[in-house]
């Protein structure tokens, strides 16, 4: 392998790595706040990408057909709860978001955004995908949020199956590829970098900075961080785990939508692309120790690089190599953990 090839591989690896890192950060956020290992994150990415393509084509976004029933279901559940428990409020954040999601869905169905403005396209995607996070939390996870990690993982797998199963008839089996939002490549004396990579890096840095600002300099962000550090403690000081969960899911779906927008021009996205992506983002998280956001992002970048170099040296066994990475990492984490005391599987 000569230096040029190595450089190109590294560039490819970092491009993949950024996507994995976005997935990894979202998965970690959800895990720390709610203990859900959120394999559904991949579906958000796919939804983001497919929606961008559909908006670019001027079609009605299929995501609206997931969003509206979900919002309705959530409203029905909330109505049932209202009838059952007299003390719950009719006008809550949850119902507000449901109604907003319905409005967005209707809007996107009957007035599909026209025009070539990239900003309009991006806004549409973000508006359609982001509400799904909290809605999914309220419908599928809230009532079992105290269960074991294992039960929550099963629930996440179920949601993944349901979404993927619905996306096949909704989007069809073929791939979706978006028109590039930025074009061209930049030459550095013979070595070129694609504009898309620079764009991705910028968005990634922007998003992580924004997240950092939110987490460290806003009250809701700090509350969320408090929950992720100590759930029980946060509950004791009056931070609602319900809202924190919904917020974590909302941030995850937002990050998913952005990842989808980033990945859509790079390659074909299929209705079932999400699972493998989520798993690799998840490998990245574990490589980063499943505890800190910067480490998770770094781990995901490493996973991306490994993915790329493994594809060069032994493409047929690429995924085996990437996933095999999990075991030594987990072993290391198990050994370094304080052992023996109060350890419960699934807790």
């Amino acid at each position: 392998m000569n230096p040029t090839v190595a450089l190109l591989l590294a560039q490819d690896g970092i491009t993949n790595g950024i996507v994995f890192a976005l997935l990894g950060v979202a998965i970690l956020l959800v895990f720390l706040v709610t203990r859900v290992l959120f394999v559904v994150q991949g579906e958000f990415v796919v939804l983001g990408a497919v929606t961008l393509v559909q908006v670019q084509r001027g079609e009605v976004a299929g995501a609206a057909w997931l969003l509206m029933p979900l919002a309705l279901l959530c409203l029905v559940l909330s109505a049932i709860q209202f009838v059952r428990e007299r003390n719950s409020r009719l006008w809550s954040l949850q119902n507000g978001i449901c109604l907003l999601a319905l409005a967005i869905g209707l809007c996107a169905t009957f007035y599909p955004p026209a025009g070539k403005s990239a900003w309009l396209q991006i806004t549409t995607v973000v508006c359609l995908i982001t509400p799904m996070g909290p809605l999914l939390y309220w419908t599928a996870f809230r009532n079992i949020c105290r269960s074991s990690i294992l039960t929550l993982l099963f629930a996440a797998m179920c949601v993944h199956y349901v979404l993927q199963g619905l996306m096949l008839p909704l989007f069809g089996p073929e791939g979706f590829r978006a028109l590039p939002l930025v074009r061209g490549r930049i030459d550095f004396g013979g070595i070129w970098l694609s504009a898309q990579l620079i764009f991705m890096l910028c968005v990634f840095l922007l998003l992580t900075t924004a997240l950092w600002l939110v987490f460290h300099h806003t009250l809701p962000g700090k509350a969320l961080r408090a929950v992720s550090i100590n759930r029980v403690g946060a509950r004791l000081v009056g931070i609602s785990s319900d809202i924190a969960g919904a917020a974590a899911f909302g941030l995850a779906s937002l990050i998913g939508a952005v990842s989808g927008i980033l990945i859509a021009p790079l390659s074909n996205v299929y209705y079932d692309s999400g699972f493998l992506l989520a798993l690799k983002g998840f490998v990245g998280c574990v490589v980063g120790g499943l505890a800190s956001f910067p480490l998770a992002a770094l781990g995901a970048l490493l996973t991306g690089l490994l993915d790329s170099f493994a594809a060069f040296y032994a493409s047929a066994l690429k995924d085996s190599i990437v996933f095999a990475l999990l075991v030594p990492m987990l072993l290391y984490m198990s050994v370094t953990q304080i052992s023996g005391r109060g350890e419960e599987a699934g807790e």
């Binding site: 491009t15 990945i263 790329s308 690429k318």
Partner: peptide, 15 residues
């Protein structure tokens, strides 16, 4: 070789 849902085959193509 590559996976049906892989996002990139750059490495294989380079090879």
């Amino acid at each position: 070789r590559y996976n049906r849902v892989d996002a990139s085959v750059t490495a294989q193509v380079l090879k």
